[in-house]
Design a protein around this nucleic acid. Structure first.
Lengths: 224, 224
DNA sequence: TATTATCGATAGTATTACTATTAATTTTGG
DNA sequence: CCAAAATTAATAGTAATACTATCGATAATA
């Protein structure tokens, strides 16, 4: 896997940046350090001024790459879901048996990343933590509908569609494959959040993983 | 139901307000109109200054009731979940059969409110819309853990616990009752959001309701 | 009637979320 | 290799936000 990833570049919607951060060293540092800083401060307390200071540069330099912090968050989460999709396709493409395929897919999609794949300046471990606690803020806004039309959520929706198709392949008669797929993706983030902050309302923790919980849930739902 | 609700007062954690908004006309107007305004502008664009203008009063007057808009959101969502809990307990208390009880519970908890019960100045229809698009912002913060210790999420967690117990009553051997309960509560909000903004990744809409989807899912999961 | 609480109005501060300008530096194209 | 173009850091400035503090006027209450 690592070898293959070396040649991978995740493409993110062009309207999410003013200037492609992949095109310069400063751009890459902006992306790289924004992940650290959002993780440390939380999205609300994160500002371009603080980011500028962290990368030993200037607020205005950051604005040359990203319009505002909301677009930056969209950029980061798009990258994350693009990367997730790549891993999903890669891991399931060769598999013939629908059940086994879905099992593998669920495993990838419900796990948090524990190791940085090292093929880019982006730390996927920290990024996945950001996605858990910040992703929903990227669409729970008054601008969702326009931004959705612009295609800012395309990658995420595509991922849900892929999962939906794998669900339907296991049981073509199951009528709620899309809802089940979206519930799994969103629910997995939620369970990860709960195990870190609201332990009393989740079973996920040291013994049980979100993967186990959702695997049982999905296959039971499809069997009925 | 309406009759009974007339005498109901939902109690919200005392630290969520500076002065109890139920104690004055101005306070009630603040709460009432904040629901309208948050719904209209979205939480990010909502300010106390705008709220003051809307109620024909002053920014500083709002601050006399709520420390900041985050606390106000916590107040509103706490009220909502408290009210939801009341409806849940009321509707299921008399029911003996665990399966039927869980069915009723799921129905209450996964539906959005369509009618204002008129027993208070709070419009529950609009409030439930706010909960769908803003609730997660109340806990996806850097301050969750301290605020959780203060008890700001107690009512919500209690609701999950009640649902968990009803799930366990149907199948005591099912090992993930808490995760299933929290997934249903959070997932229902999510499906409602999707049907309004990301139709392509949900089956919920005119024909299928989140209630149907989750009812099938829960009972199938418990049967396996 | 005196006291207290409440409210609206005004003023002021620090921070945020930008935009604009300029000068220095780096890149690159002929 | 030099001139032109692009990039960046630094500074300044604006409007809005998120508050805090103060001060009369009025209403409630004892």
């Amino acid at each position: 896997m690592d070898r293959l990833l070396e040649n991978l570049k995740i493409t993110v919607h062009g309207q999410l940046y003013v200037k492609d951060p992949e095109s310069s060293d400063l751009g890459r540092r902006i992306v790289q350090q924004s992940i650290t800083l959002i993780h440390d401060l939380g999205f609300e307390n994160f500002t371009f001024k603080k980011l500028g200071a962290l990368i030993g540069s200037n607020e205005s330099s950051v604005y040359r790459y990203f319009e505002n912090k909301h677009k930056l968050l969209l950029y980061l989460t798009n990258w994350y879901w693009g990367w997730m999709e790549y891993r999903l396709v890669f891991a399931t493409a060769a598999l013939q048996d629908p059940t086994y395929r879905l099992e593998q897919a669920l495993s990838i999609v419900t796990q948090v990343v524990k190791e940085d794949s090292n093929f880019s300046h982006i730390n996927e471990v920290i990024l996945s933590q950001i996605v858990i606690s910040e992703y929903s803020k990227s669409y729970l806004t008054k601008e969702v509908d326009t931004e959705n039309k612009e295609g800012y959520f395309y990658i995420y929706k595509q991922l849900v569609v892929r999962l939906r198709e794998m669900i339907s392949a296991v049981n073509p008669k199951y009528p709620h494959a899309a809802s089940l797929a979206s519930t799994v993706l969103e629910g997995a983030l939620h369970q990860h959040f709960l195990k870190d902050h609201f332990k009393s309302i989740t079973d996920c923790g040291d013994k049980v993983t979100p993967t186990q919980f959702f695997t049982q849930l999905v296959f039971a739902t499809l069997k009925a």
